[in-house]
Computed example of a mutant assay.
Amino acid sequence: MTKNRVTLILLIALVASSCSLSKVNKEYRGAIVGNWILNDVTYTGNSGNFKSVLFNDVSDACFEGSQWFFRNSNSTGSYTINPGAECMEGTRNIRWSVYEKGEGASQLQFKFIDEKRNDVSGGYGYRLDIVTLNQQEMTLQTNTTVEGEPITVVYHFTRSL
Rank of each mutant, 00 (worst) to 15 (best):
Q135N: 08
Q67I: 10
S97W: 10
M88Q: 07
T91A: 01
N72F: 05
Q141V: 11
G48I: 01
A31E: 09
Y99F: 15
E27V: 07
L38F: 14
K51N: 07
A13I: 08
N49A: 08
S22K: 10
F157V: 01
N93H: 05
E100H: 14
G102N: 00
P150W: 13
G90C: 14
N35I: 11
R117A: 07
T91D: 01
N46A: 14
F112G: 13
S97D: 04
N46H: 04
K23C: 08
R95S: 13
I37F: 09
L133D: 13
R92K: 15
N82M: 03
A16H: 06
S73D: 14
F110S: 15
Q107K: 08
N143V: 15
T152I: 13
S47N: 14
G148Y: 12
Q136E: 00
D40M: 04
E149I: 03
M138A: 02
E147S: 01
F112D: 09
N72I: 03
K26R: 07
G104Y: 01
R95Y: 12
A31K: 00
T2H: 06
G77R: 06
A61C: 11
S75P: 03
F70Q: 05
E27I: 00
T158V: 08
S20H: 04
D114V: 05
N72S: 08
S75H: 01
V154T: 10
T91V: 11
K23Q: 00
M88R: 15
S121Q: 07
E64K: 03
K26F: 15
C19V: 12
G90K: 00
V53L: 04
I12D: 05
E27Y: 11
G125K: 04
L21F: 14
K101A: 15
E149D: 15
I81T: 06
I94L: 05
N72Y: 09
S78V: 11
Q107A: 06
S75N: 13
N82T: 12
V146K: 03
Q107L: 01
G48D: 02
N39Y: 07
N49H: 09
G30R: 01
V53F: 07
S22G: 03
E137C: 12
P83N: 02
Q141R: 13
M138Q: 12
E149T: 06
